Amino acid sequence: MITYRLDAHPGKARGLKAITTDGLLSIAALDHRRSFAALYGGTLGYRGVRTLKRRLIDAFAGQASGVLLDPNYGILLDDGHTGLIVTLEAPGHTVHNGVPESALLDGWTVGKAKRIGAAGVKLLLHLDPRTESIFKVEYPGPELVGEIDGIIGAPWAMLSGGADFDVFEAALRRACAAGCSGFVAGRSVWQEIKQLPDTARRDAFIDSTAVKRFASLTSIVHKAATSVWSKVRVEDDLDVDWHHRYGEAAR
């Protein structure tokens, strides 16, 4: 029996509603910084990276339940209607004893992310099931994917991790059958743009292949994924004085 650990006070519940569609996660991950800055020999520059990210955001609009952006290149690129998640991390990460470790971006905080309208934040952490969070998990293989739900006991989404699209699509099907609530996908959907410096060819790829890929992933999720609300205990003991109890502990 799974004991679900994620409690949703009013603020957290609103955040979950903002980044889900019918309780399911279809997140377009565009928080990459170094990889975008290095495209085409680093010729895009700051404004060019922002323009390309905006192009991808617009392409997935209407399909994505949320978009994951970075505070360096991605702020104010979202359409204001899709749920916004912002990373807290500095670019890149190190590996210590086989475990990836990240650092917080200097000068950037949860409070600042909230003030620009973010519904959630993203942080790379070694899995600790005691954390009250939605987890994004890399595919552990067919032998272990069925164990994730019982270990985490909270909503989780499949992270594409830059895998080839066909590989990730198959992994997502298995993950949905094992209780996941959706996906967080970036490079697996659009990484071929690295070989397309010509704007017209790049746009054609985005509007055809990338959009179809995102639609396929979203279709899998809506057919087979598990709603986040089945694993979230929403606070329902509200009364006329609930706001007095909604303090620091609920932030």
Results as ranks from 00 to 15, higher is better:
P140K: 01
L88E: 10
W108A: 00
E101D: 11
V86H: 02
L172T: 00
G66W: 01
S65W: 01
T82P: 12
F135A: 12
R173F: 03
D106R: 15
L52H: 06
L76A: 11
T131H: 11
G80C: 09
L104V: 07
R130H: 07
I151S: 04
L127Y: 04
G74C: 10
K114N: 14
T109C: 11
D149E: 14
L68M: 10
I116W: 08
E169K: 14
L76N: 05
A175L: 00
L125Q: 11
G120M: 13
P91A: 10
I148R: 01
L84H: 08
L68V: 14
G66T: 02
K136V: 07
W156C: 05
A119N: 07
L69M: 14
E132Q: 10
M158W: 04
I116T: 13
L124W: 04
T131C: 09
A61M: 13
E89S: 13
Y139P: 01
V99K: 09
A90S: 13
V86F: 05
A119T: 06
G74V: 03
A64H: 12
V86R: 01
A171F: 00
F60Y: 14
A175R: 00
P140H: 03
G98Y: 04
W108M: 01
P140A: 02
L159G: 03
D166S: 15
V99W: 09
V167H: 09
L127F: 08
